[in-house]
Nucleic acid binder design. Structure first.
Length: 425
RNA sequence: GUGGAUGUAGCUCAAAGGUAGAGCACCGGACUGUGGCUCCGGGUGUUGUGGGUUCGAAUCCCAUCUUCCACCCCA
């Protein structure tokens, strides 16, 4: 019988790694919670139309990477490929912006894209992100980007570069797109096949093509930043100004366009050097002033971002600390002791002591060896003598405690927990 | 989705057509109620999977899966 395996590109997170995920999420909760962001949890499954309408039918994410399937009634559902669409849907559905459109949310959870897996890229991956609804002002962009920076700082992530761009709004983007398109058509012969296709479908995407010939052509292409309308230029400059004032280092990148159609004005990306190979974008986002309206809500401007938890964990490098072992390890000997031991361990836990019990039993020797390997700070051996006298010996195993390894102290069984706590210092 | 690598014990890796091994880890014992150090003992395995060639396959061939790299794209 061939054993079943996890689906390609979908990974188990064993406790050690789950702990690293938790640490990243805790930093998120802290950094954004302090700024007034509340957690939102939306379903992993949505109607497929939500994503095709928001992210864009023509994008790779929707067009070739989305997990789509009919439910039992034939309705087309999808596993979410990103978090913003669902958050916006929830914002609209619950009318949370009814009284005051300004709402701050963060989220964390699994996302799904059917891509070829690689390091830092998986079919089920995890993102955390935030959305700031209801503010068109550049201060909103700066708050959000500043908080992402803060998050990365809290995580201790060095060697991260923030790139910033503005891709304009309804007023100036179409104008820019047209002039770019004209330019591209004029140089069609020098472009790669993909870029010739992009010229008609999504000209902005040619900007980050990596083919040398295309790069050469694009070097002479009109610049987005130079074609921004007055309002967009002012917004962009204000965002840059705020970030400088915040002490958030960044560089502008005229070529930074994102793969999702809903962005307007600000787009940004945090790139990490090191462990990540070519999947080095660790967080990214931008402003989406039309999306809420597009999904049936009011004219509510918004900014958001998402970060890949796997990529953050990879970028952080090898884990620093192994989980500490239990504070108390209970070693029962003989049947009467086994009957009493579970209750004694539970009583210790109720006082807040991390307490493990050797449920396999065996000789004192083997149980002590297990206690040692579990990294226990103290061990209590429970045999007939101890149960009869109500006195137990508390043994210090490692260096976690006030005494030396091997020290034993006789204490009353009824005061086991307080004795351990006192001995831990 | 395209191209290229990869897979042997829990981990890191040997074994280049002739009975699958080492180190670490793990389990047990010496010490029958006291861990670590030492010594002794134990290989814990469907060589990713399925076929094929061969007297004989971890090794050669085909297929498939996984992971990894580059591309595409993205967090």
């Amino acid at each position: 019988m061939e054993p079943l395996r996890a689906v390609k590109g979908m990974n188990d997170l064993l406790p050690a790694e789950a702990g690293r995920f938790q640490a990243v999420e805790a930093a998120m909760r802290r950094a954004f919670g302090l700024a007034g962001y509340g957690e939102v949890r939306t379903p992993v499954v949505e109607e497929a139309a939500l994503f095709s309408r928001s992210i864009g039918e023509e994008t790779d994410v929707v067009g070739k990477e989305m997990y789509v399937f009919p439910d039992r009634h034939g309705k087309s559902l999808a596993l979410r490929p990103e978090g913003t669409a669902g958050a916006v849907r929830a914002y609209v559905e619950h009318g949370v912006g009814g009284q005051d459109p300004l709402v701050r949310w963060w989220y964390a959870g699994p996302m799904f894209r059917h891509e070829r897996p690689q390091k830092g890229r998986y079919r089920q991956f995890h993102q955390l992100g935030a959305e700031l609804f209801g503010a068109a002002a550049p201060e909103a962009d700066a708050e959000l980007v500043g908080l992402v920076h803060e998050l990365l700082q809290r995580l201790g992530l060095r060697d991260v570069v923030l790139q910033l761009n503005s891709i304009g709004d309804d007023a100036c983007r179409p104008v820019y797109t047209r002039s770019l398109q004209e330019y591209l058509r004029a140089h069609a012969a020098e472009l790669c096949e993909d870029c010739r296709r992009r010229t008609e479908k999504n000209p902005l995407r040619t900007l980050d093509c990596k083919v040398p010939g295309c790069r050469a052509v694009l070097a002479g292409a009109p610049s987005v930043q130079a074609s921004l309308c007055e309002a967009c230029r002012g917004h962009f400059e204000a965002v840059c100004g705020h970030l400088s004032a915040l002490g958030v280092p960044f560089e502008t990148n005229d070529r930074l366009v994102r793969g999702l159609d809903y962005y307007t004005r600000t787009t940004f990306e945090f790139l990490a050097k090191g462990e990540l190979g070519s999947q080095n974008t660790v967080a990214a986002g931008g402003r989406y002033d039309k999306l809420v309206e597009q999904l049936g809500g009011g004219a509510v401007p918004a900014v958001g971002f998402a970060a890949g938890i796997e990529r953050l964990v990879l970028a952080l490098g090898p884990p620093a600390d192994a989980a500490p072992g239990p504070e108390l390890f209970v070693v029962p000997l003989g049947e009467p002791a086994k009957r009493a031991a579970l209750g004694i361990a539970q009583a210790a836990r109720r006082t807040g002591l991390a307490t493990e019990i050797d449920v396999r039993g065996g000789s004192v020797k083997s149980q002590l060896r297990r206690a040692d390997r579990a990294g226990a700070a103290f061990v209590v051996v429970l045999g007939d003598q101890e149960l009869a006298s109500g006195r137990v010996k508390l043994k210090q195993m490692g260096t976690r405690g006030k005494g030396r390894p091997g020290d034993e102290a006789e204490v009353a069984l009824s005061e086991l927990s307080s004795s351990v706590r006192a001995a831990l210092g």
